[in-house]
Amino acid sequence: MRKALIVWGGWLGHEPQQVADIFAEVLKQENFEVEISDTLQAFADAEKLKGLDLIIPLWTMGKIEQELVNNVSAAVQSGVGLAGCHGGMCDAFRENVDWQFMTGGNWVAHPGNDGVEYVVNIKQSSSPLVDGMQDFTVKTEQYYLHVDPAVEVLATTRFPLVDGPHVLNKAVDMPVAWTKRWGVGRVYYNSLGHVANIIAMSEVKEMMRRGFLWAAEGKELAARAGASAEAAYTGMADNQL
């Protein structure tokens, strides 16, 4: 049975415990053994993390010890999947650039705050993760992110929609969902999920379900191919060099 770890906490306005419960139910329906933790010390056992198939962080803002980031990074580099949503993954640990490098982006703004109505445009691509999915409308926070150019974009949203200092720039299609590789591990991110009822939307839940399965499959596929990746990148911050 595949194993998943969900770690929730940080800013509680994102309803991380409720979102964790939704994610756990999705994973159990896919025959995962699911562990849920509300402490970052769940990342302290490096060897245990490498024994997982999937790690799901739900921890907006907050601070994290560098060693814990290194442990997660090493696990993902070895093939463990990493998947998450909204601020719980890409507005986590703002001071830690190694986390941002691994996850593929970081939140910088949500013009108009909560309640902006916008379209999520599904980007048909080489990825099966969006096969058969159609564009849909949400009313929630619209995330403006700084994004790693190495990601494969699965869905976008158009900016600007509301007033702000960004409106005189040209229109941009901001990534909503993406994948990337970290070592031989697979990383999936979706910017939707401000609160639990957004995650519970059928379209969003299906995107997350597919993302979880895709990320978790990477470990077995890498093993079959004989691929491995030792954690050569230590994640040392500048002041540790």
Rank of each mutant, 00 (worst) to 15 (best):
13 G>P: 06
15 E>N: 08
15 E>Y: 08
16 P>I: 02
16 P>W: 07
16 P>S: 03
17 Q>C: 02
17 Q>K: 12
17 Q>W: 09
19 V>S: 10
20 A>Y: 08
20 A>Q: 04
20 A>K: 03
20 A>I: 08
23 F>G: 00
26 V>Q: 03
27 L>K: 10
28 K>F: 01
28 K>Y: 03
30 E>T: 04
31 N>S: 14
33 E>W: 05
35 E>F: 01
35 E>S: 13
35 E>R: 08
37 S>C: 12
37 S>Y: 04
38 D>P: 10
38 D>F: 09
38 D>S: 15
40 L>K: 15
41 Q>I: 01
41 Q>T: 13
43 F>G: 08
45 D>Q: 06
45 D>R: 03
45 D>H: 03
45 D>P: 05
46 A>T: 13
48 K>H: 12
50 K>C: 12
52 L>H: 09
53 D>G: 10
53 D>C: 07
53 D>H: 14
55 I>K: 04
55 I>C: 09
56 I>W: 00
56 I>N: 00
56 I>Q: 00
58 L>Y: 07
58 L>R: 02
58 L>Q: 11
58 L>I: 14
59 W>N: 03
60 T>H: 11
60 T>D: 13
62 G>T: 11
62 G>P: 04
63 K>V: 10
63 K>Y: 02
65 E>W: 00
66 Q>H: 07
66 Q>M: 02
66 Q>S: 12
66 Q>C: 01
67 E>A: 14
68 L>S: 06
69 V>Y: 01
69 V>A: 03
69 V>G: 01
70 N>Q: 15
71 N>M: 12
73 S>D: 13
73 S>V: 00
73 S>Y: 05
73 S>I: 00
73 S>T: 07
74 A>N: 14
74 A>V: 10
76 V>H: 11
76 V>E: 09
77 Q>S: 15
77 Q>Y: 04
77 Q>A: 14
78 S>E: 11
79 G>C: 12
80 V>T: 05
82 L>W: 03
83 A>R: 01
84 G>R: 02
84 G>Y: 04
84 G>E: 06
85 C>N: 14
85 C>Q: 12
85 C>P: 07
86 H>K: 00
88 G>W: 10
88 G>H: 09
89 M>R: 02
90 C>D: 10
92 A>S: 15
92 A>D: 06
93 F>T: 10
93 F>D: 06
95 E>P: 00
95 E>F: 09
